[in-house]
Amino acid sequence: MSSPVIALEDVTLTLMGNAGPVNILRDISLRVEPGETLGLVGPSGSGKSSLLMLMAGLEAASSGRITVLGQELTALGEDALARFRRGNVGVVFQSFHLIPTMTAIENVATPLELAGARDAFGRARAELDAVGLGARRDHYPAQLSGGEQQRVALARAAVTRPRILFADEPTGNLDGATGEAIMRLLFELRDRHGATLVLVTHAPDLARRCDRVLGLRDGALETYAEAAE
């Protein structure tokens, strides 16, 4: 058995709310294998996005152990986590989170620039071409449709050739047809780069495309369903 790319052991996440501590995640333990696509499903507030953010090193666990690509994230500070994400991890959000003051190509080139990569713009251009937005590369986010913005976000997540892609409801803000196109693109990217994919979604048909689906309810893992395939 190969070593997992992601391993969580007894992870909990508790945040302080106005009315006191709120348990977001409770005793989560799971493993994600290299090249696997994992779907996370569950009702709103079940903690699936929080779980994804913990795995991406965007959130710090309250207790437990998170190991990603052999690196124990719980031991890292904010800046070390930022350095870790460069090149290892790509994240796609439901709300795209493009930087409004940068053009499409600049948005895509930014993670490469931060990683000190050479020819950041050449690679960004190629990635935008790959998502079909080569002609729109000098447009600002406000000049792009929702679907186009999400394609830019996909290109940005993939441009550093990350070993793991995290997608947090990437079609949540898009209409059906556009969402479908984005999902196709996401899986294509994953296939092309051979990355592991962790996908949070509400949509059952999207979840069915994953190798494995985990359900969450009230911050705990509920079901352990294998994908239809």
């Binding site: 350095r83 994400r85 493009l98 930087i99 930014t110 931060l114």
Partner: peptide, 15 residues
């Protein structure tokens, strides 16, 4: 939001 995005993309606090 821009800063948090930059942090997501790997920007260190000093950057």
């Amino acid at each position: 939001e821009t800063i948090a995005t930059l942090r997501t993309l790997g920007a260190e606090s000093n950057t």
